[in-house]
Design a protein around this nucleic acid. Structure first.
Length: 589
RNA sequence: GGCCCCGUGGUGUAGUGGUUAACAUGCCUGCCUGUCACGCAGGAGAUCGUCGGUUCAAAUCCGAUCGGGGUCGCCA
């Protein structure tokens, strides 16, 4: 039966005269009393079916019972539509299928929303009825893209001699990185597995094992707060190679990503990608994932203001902070309330204020004008590249705040000024990340990438003296201002890895308990190795032009990490808890 | 944990203290042989997220709470 099935959406005039067998859902029904039109939808598309009263048996009576989303099957004959009744808006609009019989395979309740593209319905309703949401062609298209991307990647890596190897989902909790999802062990009471944040250590062990090239398209779990581009479980394209350096990995990954774009969207991405140092990325764009599709770069004005009369700026410089600005071209006419809104915007990122100078046609206006001499102002404007018609924005604070605030202001300005071209794919690498940063809360160094990232060879000797200056053999792929993937050359020697743990403030006992197996493995002939992992969901977001990660995951969680369809997470029975020796201690609200 | 936005028939919206809560669409019934967002006629459908408060009177004002979204912190 199914072998004879015809794809509704593929029918064209060349099928004229053919007898076809259709199976699908009723998109719409137009009952004219004497003739009934049904748009039948399957995964391939939609075709118009005509039911006439003269069809055999009780077929027409059945057709009158049809309602939206009923599941039907029918045999019919493809014919050219009568002249003047063609529908140019439909792919199959030149033809129609005249039904000779009809079977209603299943009735359907009226769906809570239209099964069609561009529905305007609350997302929580879509998520509760996700199986209906996924019936919509635009959603199906996303998962077709997703499937194809996985095929392209698998095929590409297979041809490059990578082996797809699975790693455990029930694994060991580790103290570094994100919060783990924990799974209690029944067999080992009181002990817990963790779901993997990534297969990091297993893939390194596969390199120790001599598999040389590994990849996996695998689920990762992080128990952190959700965002528009972050889900608690997400999918990584994860890979690792032995006997490689950065310059082996980057071009290969560029090729892979370019191939995906070429095959999915036809977009040709220029190779090789720009490589930007972390230092430059932060200085020029205030971000380690810069969107370089537009200008509005950050400009350092410390030299101009450090000795000037404006104490707020000068003091920040004196205390080791930074003063930087952005020149917003042609924005001198910006109303005061919008400037205030931007001030509130940078406040979010910790900036205490947003200074500005308006270079208007009728002169220079600024609340801070009075603190500068005429020469200083001239100098400041020149340094910023300001011209009449522009507005200059400044933030003075410690470096991290200045970069974060201005980096985000830059994006916000670009959005408001409509400077971001969405027809361009902007790819680059950020390299030369610092190895470590200081965590004020934990009062210790933490790894910027992760603790298994190798320091640059040149910086090995400063690990003890100036650890914050050490750079890592790490690299991030950035696409349209989104961090799409990141990786590094790993540490493959026990002594270096131990040194790293020591810098991170882990006690020898903790190291032995949490990572002893890795250190032991490193003693049995570990090849130099490195790899990378891509966020598949984010890649699909870009390919499918979605700004929401939930749209590219079949059954996503809400912001409060629950599933509106299954109502997970939910309570479990006392018996289940007893099996695990778990007692709840929920604080009363 | 903080800040911001949203919650009214199935769905999308209107309604900012006072009649029977309005409109569109969907749904149901009838009519209709060329529609394709078919059309025409009629009908049903809402304890205005929940709880509490203010008031003679609350969808509307206040508080709490629940749910959804964005975001900071958090997270590669």
């Amino acid at each position: 039966m199914l072998a004879e099935r015809t794809n509704a959406g593929h029918l064209t005039i060349v099928n004229e005269g053919e007898t076809v067998q259709l199976y699908g859902w009723v998109q719409t029904r137009r009952d004219h009393g004497g003739v009934i039109f049904v748009d039948l939808r399957d995964r391939s598309g939609i075709v118009q079916v005509v039911f006439n009263p003269d069809m055999a048996g009780n077929g027409f009576d059945e057709a009158e019972k049809i309602r939206t989303e009923y599941v039907i099957s029918l045999e019919g004959k493809v014919r050219k539509r009568p002249q003047g009744s063609e529908n140019p808006n439909m792919k199959t609009g030149e033809i129609e299928v005249v039904a000779v019989n009809l079977t209603i395979l299943n009735k359907a309740k009226t769906p809570p929303f239209y099964i069609q593209d561009n529905v305007d319905v609350d997302e929580s309703v879509r998520l509760k009825y996700r199986y209906l949401d996924l019936r919509r062609p635009e959603m199906q298209n996303i998962f077709i893209i997703r499937h194809k991307v996985m095929q392209i990647v698998r095929n590409f890596l297979d041809k490059q001699d990578f082996l797809e190897i699975e790693t455990p989902m029930l694994t060991k909790s580790s103290p570094e990185g994100a919060r783990d999802y924990l799974v209690p062990s029944r067999v080992n009471q009181g002990n817990f597995y963790a779901l993997p944040q990534s297969p990091q250590l297993f893939k390194q062990l596969l390199m120790v094992a001599g598999l040389e090239k590994y990849f996996q398209i695998t689920r990762c779990f992080r128990d952190e707060d959700l965002r528009a581009d972050r889900q608690p479980e997400f999918t990584q394209i994860d890979l690792e190679m032995s006997f490689v350096e950065m310059d082996d990995i980057l071009p290969l990954m560029e090729e892979m990503v370019a191939k995906v774009f070429l095959e999915i969207t036809g977009t040709k991405i220029a190779l090789p990608f720009l490589r930007l140092s972390y230092q430059d990325a932060m200085e020029r764009f205030g971000s380690d994932k810069p969107d370089t599709r537009f200008g509005l770069e950050l400009i350092d004005v410390a030299d101009v203001v450090k000795n000037a009369g404006f104490k707020v700026f000068a003091d920040v410089i004196a205390k080791g902070g930074r003063v930087k600005g952005i020149c917003a071209k042609g924005c001198a006419g910006m109303p005061r309330r919008e400037i205030d809104a931007l001030t509130n915007y940078v406040n979010i990122y910790g900036a205490k204020g947003l200074a500005y100078i308006v270079l208007g046609e009728d002169g220079i206006k600024s609340p801070i004008l009075k603190f500068f001499t005429e020469d200083e102002i001239k100098n400041l404007i020149a340094t910023m590249g300001g011209e009449t018609g522009d507005i200059l924005f400044f933030v003075a604070d410690k470096e991290s705040v200045v970069h974060n605030a201005l980096g985000n202001l830059r994006l916000e300005l670009a959005k408001r000024l409509n400077l971001i071209r969405d027809d361009i794919i902007n790819c680059l690498w950020v390299i030369g990340f610092p190895l470590l940063e200081y965590d004020e809360e934990e009062k210790r160094y933490v790894a910027i990438h992760h603790p298994f990232t190798s320091p640059m060879d040149d910086d090995l000797n400063i690990l003890d003296t100036e650890p914050l200056k050490a750079r890592a053999k790490a690299y991030d792929m950035v696409m349209n201002g989104m961090e799409l993937g990141g990786g590094s050359i790993r540490i493959h020697r026990r002594d270096t890895q131990e040194k790293m743990f020591q810098l991170l403030g882990l006690s020898p006992e903790e190291v032995k308990d949490k990572f002893g197996y890795l250190l032991d493995a490193f003693e049995y002939g570990t090849p130099p190795h490195g790899g990378i992992a891509f966020g598949l969901d984010r890649l699909i977001m870009i390919l499918a032009m979605r700004d929401n990660i939930r749209d590219v995951i079949a059954f996503p969680k809400t912001q409060s990490a629950s599933c509106l369809l299954t109502q997970a997470p939910s309570q479990v029975s006392p018996g289940q808890l007893k099996d695990l020796s778990i007692k709840l201690d929920i604080k009363a609200k």
